[in-house]
């Protein structure tokens, strides 16, 4: 009957593969968290079997039988037993606290030689800015073997930056910085979640940590944070890059490409057509300046009938990226 031991056996070979019930251990910290997790889990199985086993044993042994005169024991308490079962759990609890506190301090104090990356969470996407290189990217691309320090803040509501593979999580509070660090060991891609409820597309606020070898990382930095060309290494057409930005930068959450109006107007056939604005003025045909202005200062000319809720992408998209988005919109006839 005991689920615990089956699980324990499965647990044993959980080294670096994602077992069916635990993410992989991508860093030293992850394995130390797992070892405390296992310690508490074995302890809980032991006490669970002790308590529930005793309960079942008593129910079976002292089950009332028909016709047998009932004689029950007059025991009302037993001071030694009561002291024993307060002190022993007390000691075990202190051990759990101390071990948890030790590991937790390790994750709180950032090592010295960490490479700093700034993270901005906003309603429903993450953006990562590399201060030295001035690159802004939707994914966290890092070289293997280099400790990374994340300095995070939010633009609107509470979010929470969570990488299960590294077992780290920190709330991203608007108006304040919060700090997190991890040391990626070898090349891999890890999933990033938002775990603090933040509204409509809280479940779509996902991103990736791409751990590259140092050469590939240098290459990535060299061409300004864009994945170099498709398979054949030839440059990707601008509209194609625009489509990737459309999906990764959160435009998809409010603008559709098939004509249906969502939170914002649809991009299908938008280029070159007339638009009436909320403040009564209108524009004969949508041109590149209007699109660029709406990306950088969305509140300037809002299309009539739509809420003025679009966040500004000032400083998050460089000119080449805005160029490719405009190309993409043009291609949507």
């Amino acid at each position: 009957m005991n689920l615990g031991f089956a699980l324990g056996h499965l647990m044993a070979q959980a080294a670096n593969t994602a077992s069916w019930w635990k993410p992989i251990q991508a860093s030293a910290h992850a394995s130390s968290v797992d070892s405390l997790f296992n310690f508490i889990m074995y302890l809980c199985f032991f006490f669970f079997v002790l308590i529930i086993g005793a309960m079942i044993y008593f129910v079976v042994k002292y089950r009332r039988k028909e016709g047998v005169p009932i004689k029950t024991s007059p025991i009302k308490g037993n001071h030694t037993l009561e002291i024993v079962w307060s002190v022993i759990p007390g000691i075990l609890l202190v051990i759990m606290f101390a071990w948890g506190f030790k590991d937790w301090l390790a994750i709180a104090v950032v090592p010295a030689n960490a490479m700093e990356v700034r993270v901005t969470g906003q309603k429903w996407n993450w953006t990562f800015t590399y201060p030295k290189e001035g690159i802004v990217s939707p994914d966290l691309v890092v070289p293997a073997g280099q400790t990374i320090k994340l300095v995070m803040t939010s633009k609107d509501v509470l979010h929470s930056f969570y990488i299960p593979d590294f077992r780290i999580k920190r709330d991203v509070v608007p108006g304040r910085y919060s700090v997190l660090w991890f040391d990626p060991a070898e090349e891999a891609t890890h999933q990033i979640f938002c775990t603090e409820y933040c509204g409509t597309s809280h479940s779509n606020m996902l991103s990736k940590v791409k751990v590259l070898s140092s050469e590939k990382y240098e290459q990535w930095i060299a061409n300004g944070g864009e994945e170099e060309g498709g398979a054949g290494g030839k440059p990707i057409p601008l509209a194609e890059k625009g489509k990737k930005l459309y999906e990764s930068r959160g435009c998809v959450a409010c603008h559709s490409v098939d004509g249906t109006a969502k939170v914002g107007p649809s991009w299908k056939g938008a280029y070159g057509t007339a638009h009436k604005f909320a403040d009564g003025s209108s524009l004969a045909s949508t041109d590149e300046n209007y699109i660029r202005e709406s990306i950088l200062v969305p509140g300037a000319k809002v299309v009539a009938g739509y809420p003025n809720v679009m966040p500004s992408y000032q400083g998050q998209l460089n000119d080449k990226q805005i160029e490719s988005i405009i190309e993409y919109i043009k291609s949507l006839k």
């Binding site: 709180a108 104090v109 950032v110 300095v151 304040r176 910085y177 919060s178 700090v179």
Partner: peptide
């Protein structure tokens, strides 16, 4: 532990 997080620091 991490000075950036303090609400009273300069930045």
């Amino acid at each position: 532990v991490n000075p950036e997080e303090s609400s009273f620091s300069q930045d």
